[in-house]
Design a protein around this nucleic acid. Structure first.
Lengths: 168, 168
DNA sequence: TCCAATGCGTGCGTCTTGCACGCATTGGAG
DNA sequence: CTCCAATGCGTGCAAGACGCACGCATTGGA
């Protein structure tokens, strides 16, 4: 019966992680903002707001991007005046990405917008259910976040059923 | 107070929708499967399993992709023997994408794997919390799915202010 | 002083995606 | 029956995002 939970979770999350969901949500979110903020650079900006001043490498590991990609987006956001690059005082090899005041303000507005959207949706829910859902969501995300950094190679976690046919 | 829920939901979902989450999950999922199945074509296959025989256009709207992209992935999956193209008997303009037996079997295995992963994670939760979380997740996804098709978002020139609308 | 290690930023190739065009089919109007 | 506007697929083309590898700068220990 718990297996049923896993299956239902897979179905729901499968839809949530679809491209349609991301594009609809984030493209509407960043529409008209400019300043180098688009659907691809928003995760960089958001991650930077969450982590504080960090290097491109660290931020890349957080959002799942290569350093080079982060650097590219950072350049665009820097040209937009939302972030600045500054050498790490403790280690000049590192270049810290830091939000400017404009950057702080804009990311705050964007997150506020998103929170408003979700709040609007959750408002029609029974208070109890909304509370439980968000709490569960937070736990789920936190566990996955921790695992994605601690866990490297499970390997034989899930066996491969008889589908290992090579046809090429 | 409810606004706090929206904010917490935004934070959690913000991480859940990150690239790192998708890549880690789906790349591990489809590793070694072959047959034209990779992290980009899996959503096509999965959506096809969910919707049944549909046209490329319909499937594209479902997953958030252009018809052309769906057609490309469909070609690859067809070469892998997982789907077939067949003209719609009711309207020969349409080309229905249909899962083969191999396709059905493989997508079933993959979804089973995913369900197993989630089940394993949820197993350590209090039964009540896991139940509530999944139920909430299903409702959340369903509402968003409906809205994304009913709502034609104008938002091309949305001002940079928090939006407030009436509940539906 | 020297050198291996670390980290950034850019050139280059690959992959994915969207737009536009050509072709085929449908259904209604004359 | 014929004609034509509408619809939908699949491909050529171009733009964009991403990863890898290289060069350069800095650090810390031998």
């Amino acid at each position: 019966m718990n297996d049923e939970l896993g299956r239902r979770c897979e179905t729901a999350l499968g839809e949530l992680l679809q491209r349609r969901m991301r594009v609809n949500l984030y493209e509407e979110l960043v529409a008209g903002v400019g300043r180098g903020v688009d659907i691809t650079s928003y995760p960089i900006l958001s991650g930077l707001a969450r982590l504080g001043p960090v290097t491109a490498g660290t931020l890349g590991a957080e959002v799942g991007l290569d350093r080079s990609g982060v650097s590219r987006h950072a350049t665009r956001l820097e040209e937009g005046g939302l972030i600045v690059r500054r050498p790490d005082p403790d280690d000049a090899r590192n270049t810290l990405l830091i939000l400017t005041d404009d950057g702080e303000r804009i990311i705050a507005v964007l997150r506020e917008r998103l929170a408003g959207m979700f709040d609007q949706q959750l408002r029609s829910w029974p208070r109890e259910q909304a509370e439980q859902f968000v709490a569960g969501l937070e736990r789920f995300v936190r566990e996955n976040h921790d695992r994605s950094f601690a866990d490297i190679a499970p390997g034989a976690d899930t066996p491969l059923t008889p589908m290992d046919q090579e046809r090429s």
